[in-house]
Amino acid sequence: MSAQPYGLIATFDDVPSLYHAAESVRDAGYRNWDCITPFPVHGLDKAMGLRRSIVPRISLAGGITGFLTGMSLIWWTGAVDYKLIVGGKPYFSPMFAFPVAYELTILFTAFATIIGMFVLNGLPMHYHPVLKYDQIRRGMDDTFFIVIEARDPRFNLENTKALLARAGGKAITELEA
């Protein structure tokens, strides 16, 4: 491989060894690296030094938008655009508008949460160097990987390889960019 590789990938057979390896990669000060796991490993975020996800902020924004959409929709259609007396009730009241605004709060929160999650994750992304690794299928099944990217300032082919080997990584392979 002549060109700079995308990074290095190391294999781990079980959760505890991945967890401890993640701690040592974190402590070595790497920034652009990742763990590949077939399921969300409880506590791995901390071992990787990840901050709390910001998805909830996007959800909150979606929820507020949904509530205001519901309320203003009912106010504008009933009290502004076409006033119609129904059953002697007021043109607008937050009381009868509440159920619809409530449902729209939930609907918009759901969309904001999911779209926010995809945007933060950079998905959909159907092409990725990691997906080209011939063993990646096992990362969806029962094996765990750590990937350290070459663009990390601390990346050095020999030293990073040594770090992964010390941490217990097997089959350390260069990933084609």
Binding site: D34, P40, V41, R52, S53, Y102, N121, H126, H128
Partner: peptide
């Protein structure tokens, strides 16, 4: 959608899943 089991993704995914559970309850 190109899911690759990345833990950085799982972190956001788990949070999104929890929020979806939280709003589906009401």
């Amino acid at each position: 959608l190109g899911w690759r089991g990345s833990n950085r993704h799982w972190s956001n995914y788990e949070m999104a899943y929890l929020i979806l559970a939280g709003i589906s309850t009401p």
